[in-house]
Write a protein that binds this DNA or RNA. Structure first.
Lengths: 335, 335
DNA sequence: TCGTCATGAGAGAGCGCTCTCGCACGTGCT
DNA sequence: AGCACGTGCGAGAGCGCTCTCTCATGACGA
C-alpha cells in the first residue's frame, strides 16, 4: 500500500478492474440488486475487501438526489445575539439526542445538527435542506407559533416533530399522553390529601399547555372536584414565579399545585418559600417533564416522567420510515 | 412558478443561460473568483436571484473533495447495548454543543453528530469520514485510553480535541488551566479555615486527573502544607463514594476536600452524609466542572467553574482554521 | 428447427459542479 | 508597426456514481 500524499481512495472502477467485471456489476453488488450471479458477487466482494473500497457519498447522492442523512433541527424563538442558546443545556435535549442516536447510529446514518434561532435562518432552511440533499428532518420546536412544520411539509421534506405542532399541520409527530400524565398528577395530589388544589398551566396556544390543563381538570373532575383554580404561565421559570404570586393572591390557602412544566414549578417553589410555605409539607407541588429543573430543587420536585429517549427513538424510526415510503399519510405516536 | 412534482432545482446551467454567460463565469461569481467583469457579475447575480439558484453541494464536493462540514464525534468507552449513552444527559455535552453551534452556525456549517461507543465503530470511523468527505472532526473523548486522536491524525483528518489527549499526540486541543482551577479550590479551602485537607483525585492515566491532583498539591504546598492526603477515584459517582469511604477510613477527621470532578463530589457528599457529617458545616467539599451534579446537591456544591461554552467555541474556531490551513502545526488553547 | 422470452452483464450517458486550458482582446514595450 | 504579455471569458474534461439501454446467452414452446 503506497501511501503517497493524497492517494485517491479506491473507486468503483478500481474494484471493477480488480474483479474483472464492469462498474455496473460492482454497483449492483454494492447496492444489493437482484439478478447477479452468485459467483460474480463473490468475486466482487473479494475485490472490495482487497481494495478497501468505500462508496463515495457525494457521487452517489449527486445522481440519486439523496444523502442518506437527516437533520436534527432545533427551533428556538428569536434570541438576542448575546445570550447563548439555552436549549442545549436542558437535559431534555441530551435525552433526545441519546434516543435518536440509538436508532440512527446502528443504521449508519448520522444526524446533522442545526439550530434555527432567527427568522432569516428559518426562511433559508428549506433551501439549505434541498441544497444539502437532506432526506428528512427531526424537528424539535420550542417555538409556540412556529412556521417550520408548515414550511417543511409544504416543501415536501419528510419531517417528524417532537411534540404536537401548535397549528395543525399534516405532519408526523411523537408526543406524550398528556392526559395520562396529568391524571397521575391529579391522583397523587388527591391521595396526599390535598384539599385546595390549583394548577399553573402553560400557554393556551401551545398544545402541550392546553392539553395538560384540560387533562388535569378532567382528572380532578373525576375525583369529584369539577372546579380547579388555574393561572396561566409561559413555561419559563420567571413565568412560574409570577403565576405563583397571582395564585397565592387569589387562593392563599392552596395546598396542592400541579404545574405544567418543571421550569415553572421551580419558580413556583421559590415563590412559595419566599412566602414562608414549606414544600412539600405545606404545599405539594408536582411538575411535568422530569427535567433538570426538577432535580435542582431541594428537595427534588415530584414530577411526571416522560420517556423522552423512547420518544426520540420512535421519532427517528418514524422518520426513516417516512423517507422510505414518502406517500404514507402522516402518523403520530403517543406515549 | 409551476411547481409540478419533482421540479428540479435550478442549476448552474440555468443561471448561465438566463444571464447569457457560460457556466464557468457563473461559477466564478458564485465562488467570488477575481477577474470577473463587474458588469457581468451584476448580470449573474441578478440571474441567480431570479432563478433562486442554490449550489448543489453533492456536485461541488464531488469535485472539490470537501463538504464544508465537520463532525462532532463523541467517543465513549465500550458499553453494553442495553444501557443508553449517558454522555448526552450531562449538561456538559449541551454546553459544548451550544458553544460549537455558536461559531459554526453563523458560518453556515453544521456539524454531523456521531457517537463512537464500540471498537468496530471506532475502527470504521476514519473510513466513514473519508467517504463522507468530512472536512474535520471535533472530538469529545471521555475514553481515557482512546486511540481515536492517533487514528485521526494518522489519517490526516483535521481534528481538535476537547481536553488534552491521554497519550501525547500531534493534535490540537482546548483545555482548562487545571492548575489555576485547583489553586482556586485550595485557596478557598484554606480561607475557610480547613485544617485537615484531602483530595479525591481522578485516574492518573487521564491528564485531567493527573493535573488536577498535582495542581492541587502544588497550591497546597504554597500554603505551607506540602503533604495532602489523596485517594484515587475513577470520575464516576460510584467511584467517588468508594473513594470517600477509603478517605474516611484513612483520615476520619478530614474537614476539607477537593474532588477532581463533580460527579465524584456528589458521591462523596452522599457518603459524608451517611456518616453523619454535615456538608459544608463539618466538611467543606469543592468539586470541579460546574456540571449538573453540583447543582443537584442540596445545598449546591461549591465547584470550580469551567467556561465550557467558550472552550467549545474556540475549539470550533480552531478546527475551521486548521481546515483552512492544514499545514499549520497543532496548537492548543488553555482557558 | 426457429422464434420468443427471461436473465445476467456491459456500454455509456449523464447528475451539477470545478478547473484547466486556450482563445480573443487590449495594453505597453521595442 | 511588431511582439510580448496580462486579462476576461468560454469550451470541455472530468469527479465517482447510478441507471437505462442494449446485447449475449440459454431455456422453452410451437
Amino acid at each position: 500500500m503506497s501511501d503517497r500524499l493524497a492517494t485517491r481512495p479506491p473507486t468503483l472502477d478500481h474494484v471493477a478492474q480488480v474483479a474483472g467485471v464492469s462498474r455496473a456489476t460492482v454497483s449492483r453488488v454494492v447496492n444489493g440488486a437482484p439478478n447477479v450471479d452468485p459467483g460474480l458477487q463473490d468475486l466482487v466482494r473479494r475485490a472490495i475487501e482487497e481494495t478497501g473500497y468505500v462508496p463515495n457519498r457525494a457521487a452517489r447522492s449527486l445522481v440519486t438526489r439523496r444523502t442518506g442523512s437527516v437533520a436534527l433541527v432545533v427551533s428556538e424563538p428569536e434570541r438576542h445575539a448575546d445570550d447563548p442558546a439555552t436549549v442545549f443545556t436542558d437535559p431534555f435535549f441530551g435525552r433526545i439526542v441519546s434516543g435518536v442516536l440509538g436508532v440512527l447510529g446502528p443504521r449508519d446514518v448520522h444526524p446533522v445538527l442545526m439550530l434555527v434561532d432567527s427568522g432569516s435562518v428559518r426562511a433559508g432552511l428549506v433551501n439549505r435542506l434541498r441544497q444539502d440533499h437532506i432526506d428528512g428532518v427531526l424537528l424539535i420546536s420550542i417555538y409556540p407559533d412556529d412556521t417550520l412544520p408548515t414550511l417543511l411539509t409544504a416543501a415536501d421534506v419528510p419531517t417528524v416533530l417532537f411534540s404536537k405542532p401548535a397549528r395543525p399541520a399534516p405532519v408526523s409527530y411523537v408526543d406524550v399522553a398528556h392526559r395520562e400524565g396529568t391524571k397521575l398528577a391529579a391522583d397523587r395530589l388527591v391521595d396526599r390529601g390535598c384539599a385546595r388544589i390549583a394548577t399553573i398551566a402553560g400557554p393556551r396556544d401551545v398544545p402541550a399547555g392546553q392539553e395538560r390543563l384540560v387533562g388535569f381538570q378532567d382528572a380532578m373532575a373525576r375525583h369529584g372536584r369539577p372546579f380547579v383554580a388555574s393561572v396561566e404561565g409561559n413555561f419559563t421559570q420567571q413565568g412560574g414565579e409570577q403565576a405563583m404570586e397571582r395564585l397565592l393572591a387569589e387562593q392563599p390557602d392552596v395546598d396542592g399545585i400541579f404545574v405544567a412544566n418543571d421550569l415553572m414549578a421551580a419558580g413556583a417553589v421559590a415563590v412559595l418559600r419566599e412566602h414562608g410555605r414549606r414544600v412539600p409539607d405545606d404545599v405539594a407541588v408536582i411538575g411535568f417533564d422530569d427535567s433538570a429543573a426538577a432535580r435542582d430543587c431541594r428537595p427534588p420536585l415530584t414530577t411526571v416522567r416522560q420517556p423522552v429517549e423512547n420518544m426520540a427513538a420512535e421519532m427517528a424510526r418514524m422518520l426513516l420510515d417516512r423517507i422510505e415510503r414518502p406517500d404514507q399519510p402522516p402518523a403520530s405516536v403517543i406515549f
